[in-house]
Amino acid sequence: MEFAPLSSWFPNNSNWNTEKKPLFIAGPCSAETPEQLMETCLEIAKNDKVQVLRAGIWKPRTRPNNFEGVGKVGLEWLLDVKKATGKLITTEVAKPEHVEEALKHEVDILWIGARSVVNPFTMQEIADSLKGVDVPVIVKNPINPDVALWMGGIERIYQAGINKMAALHRGFSSYGNTKYRNEPMWQLAIELKSKLPSLPLLCDPSHIGGKRELIYPISQKAMDLNYEGLMIETHRDPNEAWSDASQQVTPQRLAEILDKLVVRTGNLETLEKAGLSDKLENLRTQIDKIDREVVENFVARLELVKQLGDYKRENNLPIFQLERWQKVFESRPEWAETMDINPDFVSAIFKLIHDESIRIQTERKEDF
């Protein structure tokens, strides 16, 4: 699949992307009243760095009797915002009727939310409604941490004839409490990008963080990872917002965040021209050497695991030994801390190693 660049989303007379810079989308989580939407967007539009204004019109909620959006009347307000600011506008669609109404009200960009992407039937219905239409579509990651499901949603829209697309990383549901509303699991977004390299990748720090104080650091990490843009929820008075109040910022705070961001514009070609690429290659060579040694040590360890499994069988011992398992998972993170390495990282590695050790021991065949 080959996707169009973000610059193709904009009218020919637009000066956006005359140089490499991110796509910034901002606006309230929900359109609440004509005044709230217009006032918020007029303030945001003063910032030339923001190219697209957003607002939720239909809001899928986990439980009924919560605010579920103002409905299609909000599209009229959004169109007024477009006329008043000259900016492009975007909203979420969750079914064919939404697509029809959004296009009727001159919505420039559609996005599909996590709750829709998780359902292939819904994605196919939306895809069918987009056939023959030339409109950019942003596909959020599904709630589940499942790259195949995310890719499947993107493929359905692409097969409908849409090549102006982007993936929006908004984090994933996970067990346990973390500082995030939705665990970022950055490696999954990177995996998607590696599979679909021409697909623009955007980040939604509002939904990942869930708290406005986390929006800047998440945004900066996205820039460091070479994401091509951000969608940040912005409200004239976030504390009074009708939905997701804690993760919205004021237009003034949005401007501060965007001004503070460091955008990584360097590339290998620039380094080579400046004669600075040798150090990069030298460091990579050293990493490759150490990685090979790590793999060789894995081989040596797993050979010992095989011998251990044989010994346990010969002496009628069970493969899994709780005390040993507990000792490994207590000692390795402790070693990591003494060496100033993230203990959670080391725990995750040894969990994988232990799983492979159990697999090898249980799959060893006895001679008959």
Rank of each mutant, 00 (worst) to 15 (best):
W9R: 11
F10C: 06
N15M: 04
N17H: 15
N17P: 05
T18W: 03
K20P: 06
F24S: 02
F24Q: 03
F24G: 05
A31W: 03
E35I: 07
E35N: 10
C41S: 15
L42F: 04
I44K: 09
A45L: 09
K46G: 14
D48Q: 15
V52L: 08
P60N: 11
V70R: 02
E76M: 01
L78N: 03
L88K: 12
E92Y: 07
A94Y: 09
K104T: 12
H105S: 13
L110N: 05
L110C: 04
W111S: 10
R115V: 12
V117N: 02
F121Q: 12
T122K: 12
M123C: 11
S129T: 00
S129M: 00
K140G: 04
N144L: 06
G153P: 05
I154L: 09
A160D: 07
K164R: 15
A167T: 09
G171L: 07
N177S: 13
M185S: 04
W186P: 05
I190W: 03
L199Q: 02
L202R: 03
D204Q: 02
I208H: 06
K211I: 03
I215T: 01
I215H: 11
Y216L: 15
I218W: 05
S219C: 05
S219I: 05
A222R: 09
A222I: 06
A222N: 04
M223Y: 04
D224Y: 03
N226Y: 10
E228A: 07
E228D: 07
I232R: 02
E233D: 05
H235Q: 10
D237T: 13
N239Y: 09
N239S: 12
D244A: 10
D244T: 08
V249P: 06
T250L: 05
P251E: 07
Q252A: 13
R253A: 12
I257D: 06
I257S: 08
L258R: 01
T265Y: 05
G266P: 00
N267K: 12
E272T: 14
E272Y: 09
D278E: 14
L280G: 07
T285E: 14
K289D: 09
I290T: 12
R292K: 15
E293K: 15
V299G: 00
A300D: 05
Y311N: 07
N315A: 07
L322D: 13
E323P: 00
R324I: 15
V346Y: 08
L352V: 14
H354G: 03
I358C: 05
R364M: 10
K365G: 02
F368Q: 11
